[in-house]
Each structure stands twice: as C-alpha cells, then as structure tokens.
C-alpha cells in the first residue's frame, strides 16, 4: 500500500514535469527545423521520425539579421533584425535594474540609520504604494514625458521602471540594511566618516546578498515586461525591445512558426541563464516580497 502510494506520487510528478516542459521543448525543437518541415509536420516528428527530419540554424540567422552566404530569405523577412532588439532590451534592462537599486539602497539606509523628522511617514508613503497598478500612472506620466521630451527615450523607460520598482526595492533593502549590527559603523563614525562614506564603503558591500536578490528580480521583470516599453518607448522598430518585437512578429508573421519560435527562444535565453544562475537570490527576493507584478 505504502509502496503503491509512493509510486503514484512519482508518476504524478513525472507526468506534471513532462507536461510543464513540453511546450518549451516544442518551441526549442521547432526553432531548429526548416520552415517547410515546421509548417508540414508536428515538431514531435523530429523524435518519432528522426531520419526524415533535418535541423538548421537558418531561422536564427533570419531573425537575427545575420544570413549565411547564399541563404535565401523569404520576402518581407529580410529586416526582422532581432539583434537590435536584444541590444535595446539590454539598454533598457541593465540601467532599469541598477538605478532603482542604487536609489533604493540610499533610501533604505536613510530610513534605517539616519534620524530625521517625518521619517516614519515618508517610509510608509514610499512602500505603501507597492502594488498600485501601473495603469493608474500611465496617462499622467506619459503627459509629463511628452511635455519635457522624455517620451520614447531610454531615460524615460528607466525612470518609469525605477518608479514602479522602488517601493519593493526600498522595502527589501530596508529589511536587510536595518538589521545590520550597529557597532559596525559606530566605530567608523568615531573615526570621522560621513554617512556617505559609510554607505559606500560598508553598507553596499555588506548588503550584497539583498542587492543581488532584488537585482535578479528586477532584471527579469524589466527584461520581460511589455507594458512599460509599449507605452513609453517609441514604436519605431529600431528602438523596440524584444517583447514588443515579438508581439509585432506575432501580428505580421503569425504563421511563420519557424521564425516565431526562434525569436521567442532568443528572448528566453538570457532570462533563463540569469534565473538558473542566480536562482538562490531570486527565490530569496520572492519570499521577501510577493506583492509586486
């Protein structure tokens, strides 16, 4: 009885795991199959009839805009050029991760270790806004951006991601920084160090685990987000990020599964690497703050 129960548990888990993995596997396999095969037979044919299947890198070459010599690209597909989108996404996601962390770390230190009037209220204001839907901010912020010329710029998107990510960032970092032992910096104060040097020399290095937690979280968020770039980044193809381009490709080449799968896989590559590489930190961040999204 006991043994049968254990077997059942394993069977259910194996079934679920396979079910969870299959859609991504289908994407990966299809991205390496030539277009005539993708549109004629299911991707599982590659496993069931391996001798009749071929694999190619052409889909990736096409979507990245790096054709092999002599490769024929279908009409209208010459300028997909996702490489630019990868570059743009990096240009959005890296500062949109670092800037909020820096600003939030400063604020967390200020709230935790500097006495000043109104401290409590400002703290509640800062983190109490966690979870306010982005949609509420879009119109006023967009109007401001149009007025001051920030619309369609990287800076505008960084600041927007910073604004929407700050409450969680301050909250996570405050929890960490406020529990650092006081005597570490008391001796530094006696030596005449300023808050700024203490922050840079002591607090930032000591908070590395918390910073890494939020960084993984925010990087995945900014890399994967669609709404913020859709609203604040210009709609011309040269400056769009990967999620925008994928959405566009689904619209214009909805039946080109060989290209869509390759494009989608390109967009997954870095987040998956970050995710598996820094999973420990990511999970810690998830545990501490489950309100954002």
């Amino acid at each position: 009885m006991k043994k049968a129960g254990t077997m059942l548990v394993y069977a259910i888990l194996i079934f679920l795991t396979v079910a969870w993995l299959t859609p991504t596997l289908g994407l990966l396999v299809s991205s390496f199959r030539p277009d005539n095969e993708v549109s004629a037979t299911g991707w599982w044919t590659a496993a069931t009839h391996p001798t009749e299947s071929t694999f190619t890198l052409d889909n990736y070459r096409t979507v990245l805009g790096l054709p092999a010599p002599g490769q024929v690209i279908q009409r209208g597909r010459e300028n997909i050029n996702l490489l630019t989108a990868v570059v743009n996404t990096l240009a959005v996601a890296v500062p949109a991760t670092v800037i909020p962390i820096l600003i939030a770390a400063f604020a967390a230190y200020g709230f935790a270790w500097i006495r000043f009037p109104g401290r409590r209220w400002l703290f509640i204001l800062t983190i109490g806004l966690m979870g306010v839907p982005l949609q509420v901010s879009l119109i006023p912020v967009l109007r401001d951006y149009i007025k001051i010329g920030l619309n369609g710029t990287y800076l505008g998107v960084w600041l927007a991601h910073t604004g929407f990510g700050l409450p969680l960032a301050v909250y996570l970092l405050y929890n960490y920084i406020s529990t650092l032992p006081k005597d570490i910096f008391e001796s530094a104060f006696i030596d005449g160090a300023t808050h700024f040097t203490i922050f840079v020399r002591l607090i930032l290095p000591l908070s590395a685990p918390a910073l890494a937690s939020f960084a993984t979280f925010q990087f995945l968020w900014t890399w994967n987000d669609l709404l913020v770039p859709l609203v604040f980044l210009s709609s011309n193809q040269g400056s769009q990020v990967l999620t925008q381009r994928l959405l566009g490709l689904m619209g214009s080449f909805g039946q080109d599964w060989h290209l869509l799968t390759a494009g989608a896989f390109i967009s997954l590559l870095l987040p998956l690497a970050v995710f598996f590489g820094l999973q420990r930190y990511f999970v810690r961040g998830l545990m501490a703050g489950s309100v954002k999204q």
């Binding site: 600003i103 939030a104 400063f106 604020a107 230190y109 200020g110 709230f111 500097i114 000043f116 401290r119 400002l122 204001l125 800062t126 806004l129 306010v132 509420v136 901010s137 879009l138 119109i139 006023p140 912020v141 401001d144 600041l159 927007a160 910073t162 604004g163 929407f164 700050l166 409450p167 301050v170 808050h195 700024f196 922050f199």
Partner: peptide
C-alpha cells in the same frame, strides 16, 4: 538637515512623481 534629503530625497521624489501624484491626477 541636508543629509537625509540626500539619502531619501530621490526615492521619495520618484515615488511621488510616478505613483502618488498620478493616482490623484488620473
């Protein structure tokens, strides 16, 4: 008086500009 502004000022300003005021303006 100024040190706290240096540390928490930027965060508070951004949160007000992007979250608190927009709620009212919307």
């Amino acid at each position: 008086r100024l040190v706290p502004i240096l540390f928490v000022g930027p965060a508070v300003a951004i949160v007000i500009w992007y979250l608190a005021l927009p709620a009212v303006r919307t």
